[in-house]
Amino acid sequence: MNPLFELAFWGVLIPDTVFVTIAVTLLLTGLAALASRRLKSHGLSRWQTVVELYCGWIRGTIRDVFGEDPTPYVPLIGTLVLFIGFCNLLSVLPMVRPPTADLNTALALALVVMAAVPFYGIRRHGLWGYLRTYVRPHPLLLPLNLLGEVTRTLALAVRLFGNVMSGQMIGAIMVLVAGALVPVPLMILGVLTGLIQAYIFGVLAAVFIAAAVQVDVRRHKEVHDG
């Protein structure tokens, strides 16, 4: 879509999404490595304060969803929220299309969540215990459970893609129809929407993982209580 970052090798077109994604990944990895290089418990530097604020916020959010120790889930969900939030903020830069405005990126991120659900589920309950959750209310519901796995992944991807892409497109149409400075309020709204969507993506990932991890715990408790 953006010819500035496009490359063609032997007839294979590499879109700008690939380059922007790689740049964002390198930038965030470098920043994280720099920020966590000299951590200390007294006399915090500015960077460490920022990192600790972010980690504390993510931990608190995940703890609210899970109701248990959030440590195993913080790396995945924290990285997802950080990456998506940063990508969505790129929509204010001219000539750069946020990678999340490409359905491929959004789908890839949703597939990561889809793969993380059985990973954490199997880690907690074992393979057999996790597979049993698919037939849990009744074996007749197995196709619906499988279908739900696919559709919620698709919904996760299309939600992120649609929100970011529509913001971009509204800005472009406004420039076309009205003029240079008219889309600025819409872009500010887009920044808000982008950050909220990153948060939503993280919370939904946490909810999906929690549903796979805690399903037997709750049932067990009910059996014991009743």
Partner: peptide, 20 residues
């Protein structure tokens, strides 16, 4: 308000599907 935000995003996603 946190639950409201998540729920609103879920509701709003139906509108986004229609837009897509």
């Amino acid at each position: 308000s946190r639950t409201l935000f998540v729920g609103m995003a879920m509701v709003e996603s139906t509108a986004i599907y229609c837009l897509v």
